[in-house]
Design a binder for these strands. Structure first.
Lengths: 215, 215
DNA sequence: ATACACTAATCAATCGTTTGATTAATTTTG
DNA sequence: CAAAATTAATCAAACGATTGATTAGTGTAT
């Protein structure tokens, strides 16, 4: 049936996403993926054409589900720039942590920057987030809620960079945080709200700082 | 001669560092590296034993030159915590940007987290930086220069994360910054000082913020 | 001449992919 | 509705190519 077929493809994609995120594109073999998924090797090519096709399919799937989510969050007229940013951060942290193995994949692929068409596609998607953030901050500056002489591009780099660091370098961030961040419970109940409040306080301090740029 | 041999080994390491940082460990082949370095394939095994040995040798070389550099910066008694942090950031940004292709390598290796012994070694090295930062911040809190209710581990994550983001995802950060960050001139003359001042302002705002934690 | 530096040729292993055959499911036909 | 024809799904086996590594041998300098 159609449903079974979709389920099977989805199952393969689930497994492949995990294996790719653990071993990287070149490090993962089609034999390993098919083996772990419990399907015949030839099925990968049958369904996805090639190893790269399988890789791309992982992104297609996630990206299409992203697109729906992240549009039109910043278009609410009734909110202040700060409230929007607040909400934006909550949404973002939430989404990242749920899909953290996929985000590892994204980061590695972007850092590697082979497969240009894929990199471009990922960049394009991520830029939607970036631009949304930028719009909110710019609006905050325009309405005087935020300081005028802040470095918007670098603020954005900080927001994305901080979460990337935590998600992508788990051993290091685990040491720094003195907890294993791969512990589901700690991640969900403690780290998530903690990162949210931290990000907001950090941004508030920088964005609405009364002081001028002394030095 | 001995000197020639060392030079040749160093040359191979230079090339290998570049190729590995571009293609990843699995993506780079020994043939490609030896070809690009202009040496016979067997030389890699002759000098370094194996592909992994070559990989490790890259880290040994860089790490040993790191160790010398990064010790005893925070032990100056005459400086305030803030001045130390200031100097620390300057040093750090400077070092990262010069070795940016090596840092790509580090990040990918840490994110991939195969080859545990190497990951542990890298983590250990990076932790020296982390602990130095932590010490300075803790001291600042103790002396009342910094706010008491700040999230030290996450501040550290922000410092490392922000630079990682810029270095590791060049396409994305280039778009955000509206400049190609692979442009040497822009990097050196504009981005470097800009990141330094940004980091200091950001940290100052958060660390010495007079406000309490309202929400 | 003995130790070292270096090379071309070759190794088994593994890679991603393709094949041809077989079974399961669906559609078409009588 | 049942038989036949067609398509989709699955498989084991094998493909050529490439991988990292090794060998056996050639120079070369001390």
């Amino acid at each position: 049936m159609d449903k079974d077929k979709i389920d099977k493809k989805d199952h393969i994609l689930d497994v492949a996403e995990k294996v790719f995120s653990e071993l990287g594109f070149d490090g993962a073999s089609t034999r390993m993926i098919s083996g772990e998924a419990g399907v015949n090797m030839a099925m990968l090519n049958y369904y996805f054409g090639s190893k790269e096709g399988l890789f791309l399919a992982i992104f297609e799937r996630k990206i299409s589900s992203f697109r729906a989510l992240l549009q039109n969050i910043g278009n609410d007229e009734s909110m202040s720039a700060w409230d929007k940013l607040d909400k934006c951060i909550d949404n973002y942290i939430e989404r990242i942590i749920v899909n953290n193995c996929f985000h590892k994949l994204i980061n590695r692929e972007l850092s590697l920057n082979k497969r240009w068409s894929l990199s471009d596609k990922i960049t394009e998607i991520l830029m939607v987030n970036v631009l949304e953030l930028k719009k909110i901050i710019d609006e905050g500056i325009a309405t005087g809620v935020f300081n005028g002489d802040i470095d918007v591009p670098l603020v954005i780099s900080t927001i994305f960079g901080t979460k990337n660091f935590i998600i992508n370098m788990p051993q290091l961030s685990s040491l720094i945080l003195a907890h294993d961040i791969r512990d589901e419970k700690f991640m969900e109940e403690e780290l998530k709200p903690r990162v949210k409040t931290y990000m907001k306080r950090l941004l508030k301090a920088y964005l609405v700082n009364e002081n001028d740029n002394s030095k």
